[in-house]
Design a protein around this nucleic acid. Sequence first.
DNA 1: GAGTGGTCTAGACCACGCG
DNA 2: GCGTGGTCTAGACCACTCC
Lengths: 244, 244
Amino acid sequence: MDRPGRLTGDHSTRSAWVADDLRRQLEDGVWPPGTRLPGEVRLAETYGVSRATIRTALRSLESRGLTATRHGSGTYATGAGSGIHADLRHLDSMTATIRRVGAVPSMSYRRRELVPADAEQARHLGLAEGDRVLVTERELRADDTTVAFSYDVLSGTVLPDDLAPATIEGSLYELLMTVGVDVAWATAEVHAAAGERIGWGDRPADAVYVLLDQVHRTIDGHAVAWSRTYYLEGRFRFSLVRTR
Amino acid sequence: MDRPGRLTGDHSTRSAWVADDLRRQLEDGVWPPGTRLPGEVRLAETYGVSRATIRTALRSLESRGLTATRHGSGTYATGAGSGIHADLRHLDSMTATIRRVGAVPSMSYRRRELVPADAEQARHLGLAEGDRVLVTERELRADDTTVAFSYDVLSGTVLPDDLAPATIEGSLYELLMTVGVDVAWATAEVHAAAGERIGWGDRPADAVYVLLDQVHRTIDGHAVAWSRTYYLEGRFRFSLVRTR
DNA sequence: GAGTGGTCTAGACCACGCG
DNA sequence: GCGTGGTCTAGACCACTCC
């Protein structure tokens, strides 16, 4: 087995290298769904790493739903990997999510405005009513098909004073990145929604939406954005592997 | 710091004991949202355990959304713990989920029948068309309020031949447990749905539902159940913490 | 550069499952 | 009873953040 001296190829760590090799073998059908992988001690010998490193790699596969592990029995291939589209557990920009499912993302803004926060916006972002916020309304497309409408509110405290709202393009996270804000985590609520008030332009009259209501935060818990994204039912698949 | 010799109190492992102690302190406001916890080395000294044990405990807190960790910077309290209702990442029976949010679950069956599988049911469960399956339709209540309608299909391969469908009560997982089947993981899709065809009895005419479409599997990948559960929008909160 | 988390090792013992 | 994964240790070095 070819083992990296310090760092070989594009893998920075041994566990990432092991995980990637196992992932490739799982996808190639070396272990069909339901079959048991070699034990951890055996894998450690095979790859020439410690058992802890193997366990790190296996946890990574399990978190992506490719394997399931049971105490005293073994680690099994699930064969579920390819079916996962938008993983709800992992926080990503919408454009990155669309790109990851193999489509070309695009978007157009209907509204980009600096306004005083109303009571609800202030509550979500931990601001005082009347504080400056950036309000945007966007249509998101994957391969030129509308997949979602997003209503976003960015806290003015993280935005530069000379921001020109009309020049804003692209992803919300990209904008935040350019002003030095790193979104580390978000609390999300999943809802269903329907009605005339949602979205604009060409869309089914009886459209039903999956609503992702999220507050995005920096590592220190500071709320920087509140987003409500309405995904047109049927045009986007939210999948996840749930384990006990 | 009181440290367990082998196993003290109700905690079977040191890391569980550490995680529980930290969780209690987080809930008690010892570290308000956004503040940094002591470093891992410091925590290891405080609790008298190795750093690896501390890291196991911190990962457990992070997976529950109570903390967020960033390389080179530290581990921070999120303050998000109390808001999480039904965690989509964790697979649980619906009755257990309802119980966990502090409500009393109950349910009533509209249909419990052994029938030959149709093409769609057979496809989801990996059976042949015409194979025996148990089809159920249930209404789920929390504190006597209807929260969901569930359409479930159980594979006949795991059911005893002398099963009397009319006697079935309670949770799907409980039934599977009694016949020796342990559900280890499930692939889930999140959708939005609306329409007259969903549910029965007293319910809003214009009701919108969050649909959880799940295939439940044993550790070896064998599909044992296909469930479509329609949660009435607004009566149940699906929350999760997403991290990058 | 000091302090933080991330990775890794080598070895040990424990708890579970399964025949 | 034996093989499996689960936990734990003590120590090392690396990568990142932030002053």
